[in-house]
Structures are given as structure tokens and as C-alpha cells.
Amino acid sequence: MPVPGKNSWQLADHLGHPTANPIEWLLSRAAWDAGVLRDEVCAYVVEHLGILEGC
């Protein structure tokens, strides 16, 4: 992203948020599931590139 610095306030401003709260929530309190993310990335690759190996 073409944002100098890349702290939560700068990212929020670039995205049009009035505060950094959404970015800070995402980075510090959001629940992440590596398996779900892997499956989403795999589905995206298959859909856009048609590559099935490794998925």
C-alpha cells in the first residue's frame, strides 16, 4: 500500500476510517484460523489461475 510509515493510524486514514480502532482490532483481537485462510487462498488461486497443485 502506498502509505508512508504503516502504523495503524496511517492505515486507517488511508482506508477512510475516522479512527484506528478497526485496524487495531484486526491486528490485536481478531480471531485467525490458519486452515481457513489457507483454504480461502487456495480457492482464490484455483478460481483466478486455474492451478490445482498443492491445494
Rank of each mutant, 00 (worst) to 15 (best):
M1A: 13
P2E: 14
P2H: 11
V3C: 05
V3E: 06
P4S: 14
P4M: 10
P4D: 13
P4C: 10
P4Q: 12
G5N: 09
K6C: 13
K6G: 08
N7V: 08
N7K: 09
S8H: 03
S8C: 05
S8N: 07
S8T: 08
W9Q: 15
Q10V: 08
L11F: 04
L11N: 01
A12C: 02
A12E: 00
A12I: 00
D13S: 12
D13T: 11
D13Y: 08
H14A: 10
L15H: 04
L15N: 00
L15D: 03
G16V: 01
H17S: 05
H17A: 07
H17N: 08
P18K: 07
P18V: 06
T19G: 04
T19V: 03
A20E: 04
A20M: 06
A20W: 03
N21H: 13
N21S: 14
P22S: 05
P22C: 03
I23S: 04
I23N: 03
I23V: 14
E24R: 14
W25I: 05
W25Y: 14
L26C: 13
L26D: 07
L26N: 11
L27I: 02
S28Q: 11
S28V: 02
S28M: 07
S28L: 09
R29I: 01
R29W: 01
A30H: 08
A30T: 00
A31R: 15
W32G: 00
W32L: 06
W32S: 00
D33S: 04
D33F: 01
D33A: 01
G35E: 09
G35I: 01
V36N: 00
V36W: 02
V36A: 04
V36T: 06
L37N: 09
L37V: 14
R38D: 11
D39S: 13
D39F: 01
D39R: 11
D39N: 11
E40G: 09
E40S: 10
V41R: 09
V41T: 10
V41F: 10
C42R: 05
C42I: 03
C42A: 11
C42H: 04
A43D: 11
A43F: 03
A43H: 08
Y44Q: 14
Y44E: 15
V45P: 08
E47A: 13
E47P: 02
E47C: 07
H48G: 10
L49P: 07
L49E: 15
G50S: 11
G50L: 09
G50C: 10
G50F: 08
I51T: 12
I51H: 12
I51V: 15
I51R: 14
I51K: 13
L52D: 14
L52F: 15
L52Y: 15
L52G: 13
E53T: 15
G54F: 07
C55W: 05
C55G: 10
